[in-house]
Design a protein around this nucleic acid. Structure first.
Length: 370
DNA sequence: TAAAATT
């Protein structure tokens, strides 16, 4: 954990060297879910093993989720929640451990971990119930000077707030005067609408609007479909238009599913692997990266933390001595996309981890070398 | 005036 925090701190420095600090952070409030309520405390539903994971990258699969959290301890079950129609990730999921201690360790280790443009949130799942659904409010007309803390103070009189957020201009960082409040229970949200909609917050000159937030899941699939359907070249496809259309389709698929196809460097493999040419690092299911000079106590989570921010990571492995179970000084990381793997290697090769300088490269197939 | 929080 000590080494892990060093990596996270270093990655923060590495990744925040542009003006994208505001758009890359999710900015959710860090209010802790305390899932024990007087009524449900001690019941089987009040689980100390079941976690909800929020703000997952769009292209993260259930297998990647399981692999990431499986690096902490044995998982009883794992589910990435997807759109029922399109199958797209809704950006959150559940991980249920066998051992409550592993669930606690996962919160301590993985909450706040940066993966690509997201900062994931790991917390105990509340017992599933209709009373906690549709408890999210959309608030507009807020004074631009109002802080997240002040927003929470205004709404907290109506119930327990799970998350709060004020949207800000991506360039200036100034409040856009709109935000979200998620209550623990729907009845609390209903009372907040009654009490605060069309009311002026203390010191404000204009009344605010408070209503139930829309469900964001429908819009994405519709936007993708209409974007495809309304493409100008769609009605009269000649060869060029078809190619352009294909390019847009690839981009859409890439945005929606993280899929790369023939316009990406992955396509090189489709030709060269047929010709029997070995490509360094490519193992068929992704790009395998060799990481050398890891400490004896290195574990899988450190590899996730180092490589996850660069893109889709499907697997990590620390090679250990059979008898001592200590890391033998190296490990492997598999990344889906060539370009993300290349950036990760360029960024992490020569990286100083504690008192060690890492060597990072595509894995070479030594058995085929002379 | 809109970001993926209950399987």
């Amino acid at each position: 954990v000590n080494v892990s925090s060093q990596v996270i701190a270093a990655m923060e420095t590495q990744l925040s060297n542009g003006p994208t600090c505001n758009n890359t952070s999710n900015g959710p409030s860090t209010i802790t879910n305390n899932c024990s309520s007087p009524v449900e405390s001690g019941s089987v539903e009040d689980s100390k093993t079941n976690l909800i994971v929020n703000y997952l990258p769009q292209n993260m699969t259930q297998e990647e989720l399981k692999s990431l959290f499986g690096s902490i301890g044995e998982i009883e079950s794992c589910k990435l929640v997807r759109d029922k129609i399109t199958g797209q990730s809704l950006g959150y999921g559940f991980v249920n451990y066998v051992d409550p201690k592993d669930a606690e360790k996962a919160i301590n280790t993985l909450n706040g971990l940066r993966l690509q443009t997201k900062t994931i949130k790991v917390s105990y799942a509340r017992p599933s119930s209709a009373s906690i659904r549709d408890a999210n409010l959309y608030v507009s007309g807020l004074p631009k000077t109002m802080t997240q803390k002040e927003l929470e103070q205004l709404f907290s009189q109506y119930g327990r707030i799970i998350t709060s957020r004020i949207l800000v201009d991506q360039v200036t960082g100034v409040s856009r005067g709109v935000g979200f409040i998620r209550f623990d229970r729907r009845v609390e949200a209903e009372e907040a609408i009654k009490g605060l909609n069309c009311q002026k917050p203390p010191g404000a000159t204009e009344p605010i609007t408070v209503k139930f937030a829309n469900n964001p899941s429908q819009k994405t699939s519709q936007a993708l479909l209409s974007q495809l359907y309304q493409s100008p070249n769609r009605r009269y496809p000649g060869p060029l238009a078809q190619q352009a259309q294909r390019f847009r389709l690839d981009n859409l698929l890439n945005m929606a599913y993280g899929v790369k196809s023939r316009f990406s460097p992955m396509a090189i493999d489709g030709v060269t692997s047929l010709a029997g040419i070995n490509i360094p690092g490519h193992a068929g299911t992704g790009w395998c990266i060799f990481v050398y000079n890891l400490a004896p106590d290195a574990d899988e989570s450190i590899l996730w933390q180092m490589f996850g921010p660069f893109g889709a990571v499907t697997n990590v492995k620390v090679i250990r001595d059979f008898n001592t179970n200590k890391c033998k000084g190296f490990g492997f990381v598999t990344m889906t996309n060539y370009d993300e793997a290349a950036v990760a290697i360029a960024s992490l090769n020569g990286y100083r981890l504690g008192d060690r300088v890492l060597q990072v490269s595509f894995k070479t197939n030594k058995t085929h070398k002379a």
